[in-house]
Simulated scan of single mutants.
Amino acid sequence: MTLLNESVREAAQRSVLGWLATVDAEGQPNVSPKEVWAIADDEHVVLAHIASPVSARNIALQPQVCLSFVDVFVQKGFKLKGSAHEVRAADPAFARWATPLLAMVGQRFVIQSVLVIRVTSVVTIVAPSYRFYPYETTEVSQVASAMRTYGVQSLKEES
Rank of each mutant, 00 (worst) to 15 (best):
M1R: 08
T2K: 06
E6Y: 05
V8M: 01
R9H: 06
A11E: 01
A11V: 08
Q13C: 04
V16R: 13
L17I: 14
L17A: 11
V23S: 02
E26I: 07
G27S: 05
P29M: 03
N30S: 07
A38K: 02
I39M: 09
A40M: 10
D42N: 15
D42R: 13
D42M: 15
H44K: 14
H49P: 04
I50L: 02
A51Q: 12
S52A: 15
A56Q: 09
A56V: 12
A56F: 12
R57G: 08
Q62W: 13
V65R: 02
C66L: 14
F69L: 14
F69Q: 14
V70A: 10
V70E: 06
F73W: 13
Q75D: 04
Q75I: 12
G77L: 02
K81W: 07
A84C: 05
E86D: 10
E86W: 07
A90W: 08
D91I: 07
P92I: 15
A93H: 08
F94G: 00
F94R: 01
W97Y: 15
T99D: 15
T99I: 08
T99E: 15
P100C: 01
P100E: 01
L102Y: 02
V105K: 07
Q107M: 10
R108S: 08
F109R: 10
S113D: 02
S113G: 12
S113Q: 02
V116W: 02
I117F: 00
R118Q: 07
T120R: 11
T120I: 09
I125N: 06
V126I: 10
V126H: 08
P128S: 05
S129Y: 12
Y133H: 08
P134G: 06
P134T: 12
E136D: 09
Q142P: 00
V143E: 07
S145F: 12
S145H: 14
A146G: 10
R148H: 12
T149H: 09
Y150G: 09
V152Y: 13
Q153R: 15
L155I: 15
E157Y: 08
E158Q: 11
S159W: 13
